[in-house]
Design a protein around this nucleic acid. Structure first.
Lengths: 336, 336
DNA sequence: CTAACAATGGAGAACGTTCTACATAATACC
DNA sequence: GGTATTATGTAGAACGTTCTCCATTGTTAG
């Protein structure tokens, strides 16, 4: 078991130097001669030494960054994670993901666990805890919050500009000639503020107002079923909308099903747009117009900010990433 | 920072006992009086003490289990992870996920990192490394391998019975009256043996033989594009198949697109079946017949086996989980 | 009443690093 | 040639736990 592990003492013995010297070489610290450098490096290679992160934790860094995921099923997590690991690929940092669940309590348990494992910093993706809890975590360790608008005193934040994203959709639909554009959002029940769906709905309202149009928001849930139910209700109205903007692609898929069942053809009878640009949106069979968040950029930015924080920056930063509209086959001009 | 951390010494001081005694209480070890128990427990609560996992690591357990993910995009990972965390929910163990990437080298880096962080055990999901590398890891720490058939001397394994799954599909299609059933598989290029797609293809061949039918395997890749290309080739043949069984749902979606483009209606002109039962397969708009692996059971079993290993079992176990066929709208009797 | 033993609590040495302080050697300056 | 300065290496004390002895109590047996 652990008996087989090569330690810094083994390396020191092999190279005929002190453990302190080996530690210096490993850390790239000041005060090492070229000769010492080569001697130790060689011994490390020969023995296949790797520093024991847990032992390091007791004194300094662990070179481990934790990413708390609020919902493993969220389809653009992979992009964000790729962005994070990509940005960190050439550093010594390792990334570990913690499935935090969707409950504040389980998320708190996970962040505690990460702190207990002395991770050097945390990236929290769409956390649902209160601002106070968030602030408490941020005093214990450097934190970057992803996907949550608002208050960021003690930590950094990376957000998608959801107001802009919603605006892009509305502008696009208005440009096509639509005037009755409805929005399906997620029913607010968490106490956490600044969650994306709220901001998207607000962005939709702003954009509609800017065009002098009446807004029409229906709150169900961001699931296929939620989209289906919402669309069914909207399509049953006398002056049914000619376009539905769902706040999430998964809900947009439900809208498409409702259109199918109602015998409406897309986009002739009904235009449909989503948000998130999940993988299947691009499948030719679906071809859903959607807002793309560029998870890569979001993840890379979060990683960047976190490393900066760890390395000493104390001023707090909020970075906003601009989304882009991907126009596909589910949106078109309304039937005259 | 760390200065704020409550340590076992603080608890000992508060309770007026030794650190050794506190440690005993925390670990539930032998030799603690009822009075000591309550005194210490109370002090722990008052101070909000949580054991420092990194410090624990140096002596005993870390109560951390690592799960290496080979491909974060794989749509049934969430189920497996839920199965794992669900099974572990009432224990002291915490689960951390490591994105290992799809390259043997990056996966090795991740498993090394997990071992360096002295995790108590590892679950490897569809690892692509060689059997030798796998065995090496298994000597360093308890290991459970998920989704890889074959050799399991030093570690436990949980596999989906892919032979059975492929058989279910073939039996279903033959039962509907199909005789020309083609299979699309993933092009083998990794050196790792026993990967699911190989076994599924073999199961398909066995089942076809059992029915006295000729097999027809085409290797492209498990992507939407791979399914599309494969289907296009198959459908261009003179005696084109009346049913296509894709080894993965994502490829099956490509098959559906190819059918659309060829003007074939599903399932009348072509039956299509997939494997994995990914979330969107159940969307009414897709309604794909598929084989369900029950990721929950797989994950829960893996967690169970790992904990058993950690707690001392040395005999190696391989657990096979039976898949089920979910019949939906993309399969039906062939046109007479 | 004493010897043997069980039950309980505590001292203190690990575990594998980092890092401050110091010792020594080499170089620079006048 | 002596002193100040810089460069290089090492001792050894942390870090927060666990866990193996021991020391001290009671308790039981004879």
């Amino acid at each position: 078991m652990t008996s087989g592990r090569v330690t810094i003492a083994d390396v020191a013995r092999r190279a005929g130097v002190s453990t302190a010297a080996v530690s210096k070489v490993v850390r790239g610290a000041y005060g090492v001669s070229a000769e010492m450098q080569t001697k130790v490096t060689q011994a490390i290679e020969e023995l296949g030494y790797r520093p024991h992160a847990a032992a390091r934790a007791l004194r300094g860094r662990t070179y481990t960054l934790g990413v708390m995921l609020s919902d493993t099923r969220n389809p653009f997590f992979p992009d964000i994670i790729e962005g994070i690991t990509g940005r960190l690929g050439d550093t010594e940092y390792q990334v570990l993901l913690g499935p935090g669940g969707i409950e504040p309590k389980t998320q708190a348990r996970m962040t505690d666990a990460m702190i207990d494992r002395s991770m050097d910093g945390l990236i929290l993706i769409s956390p649902v805890m209160t601002d106070a809890e968030l602030a408490a975590i941020a005093t214990a360790t450097p934190v970057v919050v992803v996907g949550r608008h608002g208050g960021a005193a003690a930590y950094d934040a990376v957000v998608d500009d959801d107001v802009m994203g919603a605006g892009l959709v509305v502008d696009h639909l208005v440009g096509l000639g639509h005037t009755r554009i409805a929005h399906i959002t997620h029913l607010e029940r968490a106490r956490a503020q600044g969650l994306p769906h709220t901001v998207r709905a607000e962005g939709y309202r702003q954009a509609m107002r800017a065009h002098g149009l009446a807004d029409d928001v229906l709150a169900t849930s961001f699931t296929e079923e939620g989209g289906f139910e919402g669309a069914r209700e909207l399509l049953a109205r006398d002056d049914r909308p000619t376009a539905i903007f769902a706040g999430a692609d998964i809900a947009a898929l439900g809208v498409l099903r409702a259109a199918d069942e109602a015998g409406l053809s897309v986009p002739e009878d009904l235009s449909v747009a989503g948000y998130d640009n999940i993988g299947i949106a691009s499948l030719k069979r679906i071809s859903l117009t959607s807002v793309d968040q560029d998870g890569h950029v979001i993840g890379a930015t979060a990683a960047q900010l976190l490393v900066e924080r760890i390395e000493g920056r104390s001023r707090s930063v909020t970075s906003s990433v601009s989304p882009t509209l991907i126009v596909r086959g589910t949106t078109g001009p309304p039937r005259p």
